[in-house]
Design a protein around this nucleic acid. Sequence first.
DNA 1: CCCTGATTCGC
DNA 2: GCGAATCAGG
Length: 175
Amino acid sequence: MWTDERVELLKKLWTEGLSASQIAAQLGSVSRNAVIGKVHRLKLSSRGRATAAAPAAKKKTVATAPVQKSVTTMRSVAQPQRIVTASVGATALQVQFDMEPAAQQVMRPTSDVVVPISRRLHLVELSERTCKWPNGDPLSEEFNFCGNDAKDSSPYCAYHARVAFQPVAERRRAR
DNA sequence: CCCTGATTCGC
DNA sequence: GCGAATCAGG
């Protein structure tokens, strides 16, 4: 049933660019079809340009030229990073995104492993295709899941699968 | 196959 | 008005 509150939340989330399925997940008790249908009836279809949500990172691992020598032989596990909570600030007008992936991701010495930026999804937003690696304290409001693409029906993305299923031998050494 | 929104149409 | 089924597209 579409209560006033639910309709308002729908309007808000739709305006912010969330997909119909994500909105349905947050509202609960409704399908994405229901959300889309409602959106149409409310006549608030357009949203600028956003097909939004998950712009899968397809950056090629540009093997930077080895123009260095010393460098620390650090092989620690990377720290979880904060994604710069940019955009999303609509309370009337939507400025919309258009940020360059430039500033961000300042990798330290680190290893050769690429640490993904988590999509920070809520439990209800996970599908069988998303990485279920948990971030943070489950009791915290900020608790979330990685959510990156998990290939071959694995519960985790490529990176977290390595961490989770680390071979015994490798585990001993890494310590 | 996964996902997206758009439309139709019986209820 | 509602939303499942279906369509069209990425």
